[in-house]
Amino acid sequence: MMKTTEKILRHSNTVRIIHWSVAISGMLLLFSGIGQMPMYKRYNVVLLPGLYWVSDYNITLVIHLIAGAVFGAAILYHIVYHLMQKEFSAMPRSGDVSESIIIIKAMLTGKEEPPHGKFLAEQRLAYAAMGLTSLVLLLTGLIKVYKNTGIVILQPEFMTATTLIHTIATPIFLFLFVAHLGAFVIKENWPLFPTMFSGYVNKKYADHRHPLWNYKEKK
């Protein structure tokens, strides 16, 4: 007799589509944005097989604009969707910093973690950091894009500040992106990885690690 495992829906289709839209467009934005720095010719990336084109600003600019369109659309979809659904479980709460320290200590020492809701305190903080950085990049990116829609001349000091903020926010985004992936090095987080594809997580895992998550009440 085949043993079946009961599953709990953790991420809806909408959430997963938006997540992967942001993730894929984010990677393309990083790749094309670094190409716009310019870095690929300087550091001989163009000499790698099949990458002779990456120093072409025309190509990387078009990639950046298309990926930026997807990124911007997905972020606004995410904000409006969750506002209208009144879903704020990923937003940081009071005490998340101290709780995150406890969680990290527990992970390092092998002690029991405190009970979690749908998201861990550190996940909520990471979400806020990534969300804030993404919004900064989106806002400054839109200003930069606006001036490229025609003969648009904005105040030079304003444009310099906007451009520098966009450029400085990029390595922060890259760091958070890598840290996000790095979270899956920790064994306790492994069961969460497939949920971004299937949407479902094992009920046993949810009940054990996320006892404060009242998934039955989810619509």
Binding site: Y57, A69, G72, A73, V80, L142, Y146, N148
Partner: peptide, 28 residues
């Protein structure tokens, strides 16, 4: 002029967030 030749993509990128917001609103 790479800017002139990509201005249509710039316009699309500028409007995309609005499209995303409208899409979420309409779907909900």
């Amino acid at each position: 002029n790479v800017i002139d030749n990509t201005s249509h993509w710039s316009s699309a990128a500028l409007l995309a967030p609005v499209a995303g917001a409208i899409g979420a609103f309409a779907a909900t």
